[in-house]
Nucleic acid binder design. Structure first.
Lengths: 230, 230
DNA sequence: GCGTTGCATTTTGAATGCAAAATGATACTA
DNA sequence: TAGTATCATTTTGCATTCAAAATGCAACGC
């Protein structure tokens, strides 16, 4: 294979074992199957996946690099527990990245794109009206992700996804209070309007504020309920 | 050890083999010792580091996750070659992150912090006056990093560093043309002024534009010289 | 009774081994 | 000669093994 071809080729590739394990571990963490703050014995996970230690350990190193797992040399792998400082630090970063996605999305969005976001918005509003928070959260996430996709910056999406994974478990603590939920819904109406108007600067600002407001709400919940597992 | 203590402890830890290897590989790539677009035979690197394949392979997976290395299953590790698209995508992200760092830095900066940035700025101006581009670039990087540090968001710094690694080799192609170098220097004067005035919004805007301007300059160089190794 | 020390067990870090896939070279066919 | 098929060699993916570090427990001293 010529070297210069490397940047172009995009061949079919069956994922390797360790990649599948990385995905599976991330999944298990966000599903709560691997509780935050606990230790993960290698042997146990090997048995569960039916693989040897080598690919599992490779996956653990990758997860550790992403921050979802903390590796203590000679003392095993621990599911990373977000500190209040982590939350403080992560939300502004997410806000900046989403702001950028908003800007770019306004440049790129086709009418079909906007229509799709609008449809998702109404779907979310439906769940809101019914008080179905899990469904609301799911569609909410889809909206943010959709805007990211419209932005058409795969690298941005990748960075965003990796960070989103880390705060996924706390992100929707925010709407625990009805007040915050109402406010979030209103913010989303403004977000949709800005996208429809293709007002990139405004959309960027709204998304950024949206995330910062979420941070405050989450911190409040955490403060109130010190036992909430981050 | 109690689980809840985990988030607090900050013990001494000797880096493990694979971590050292990750650092070393990153270093070798940015030094050009591992040329972009080429293949890295495991055996060769093992010999060079005097280690077995296991920790080396762990390091490769981590680097691949960061994007500096591309892993083709059964076909080895390749030093990732940035495409023009990657450049297009990375600079706006860097710009957003730097903008955030500017905002935060303006909130936090002590007079001593500002004095330090100012000192670095003059040091950079000196190298500019002498036409010493390598030194200029080095100090330039220190200024951006210093602002990041003043922002006091370790997570942001970590994300930033990981992305900076990827574009490090092209970042300073920008100043290849004297025109761009002059402009960059002027932009840096405005950046310093905004920091001194603690004008977060302005500093954010300046840093963001600074990065976008860099992108255009870099792309121009790349277009002109198609053989430049990305 | 409480804390410390020493030792067996468990768990992790890294090296080695083995099978599968890819690579490269040669021979063969049209 | 161009193209394909075959096979030895190399390289990779994963499993296994071995050594070092950590853990847990019991014996011991105070």
């Amino acid at each position: 294979m010529s070297d210069s071809a490397l940047s172009v080729i995009q061949e079919i590739r069956r994922p390797t074992l360790h990649e599948e394990v990385v995905d599976r571990i991330r999944e298990m963490i966000s599903e709560g199957e691997l509780p935050v703050g606990t230790r993960v014995p290698e042997k146990e996970l090997c048995a569960k996946f039916g693989i040897s230690r080598t690919p599992l350990r490779e996956a653990l190193k990758v997860c550790a690099n992403d921050g979802v797992i903390t590796l203590l040399p000679n003392r095993g792998a621990w599911i990373t527990q977000l500190t209040p400082e982590d939350v403080d630090e992560l939300f502004p970063i997410m806000g900046s990245l989403e702001a950028l996605s908003g800007e770019l999305a306004c440049c790129n969005a086709t009418d079909a794109d906007v229509a799709e976001v609008k449809a998702l918005h109404y779907e979310m509003a439906m769940h809101y009206a019914r008080g179905d928070q899990p469904s609301y959260n799911r569609v909410n996430q889809m909206i943010h992700q959709k805007i990211m996709e419209i932005a058409a910056n795969p690298t941005l999406l990748q960075v965003y996804r990796s960070l989103a994974e880390r705060i996924r478990r706390v992100r929707y603590l925010a709407n625990a209070s009805t007040n915050r939920w109402d406010a979030a819904m209103k913010e989303h109406e403004a977000i949709l309007a800005a996208l429809e108007a293709r007002d990139g600067a405004l959309l960027a600002h709204l998304l950024k504020s949206h995330l910062l407001n979420k941070r405050e709400a989450v911190k409040k919940v955490i403060r109130e309920d010190d036992r909430s597992s981050l």
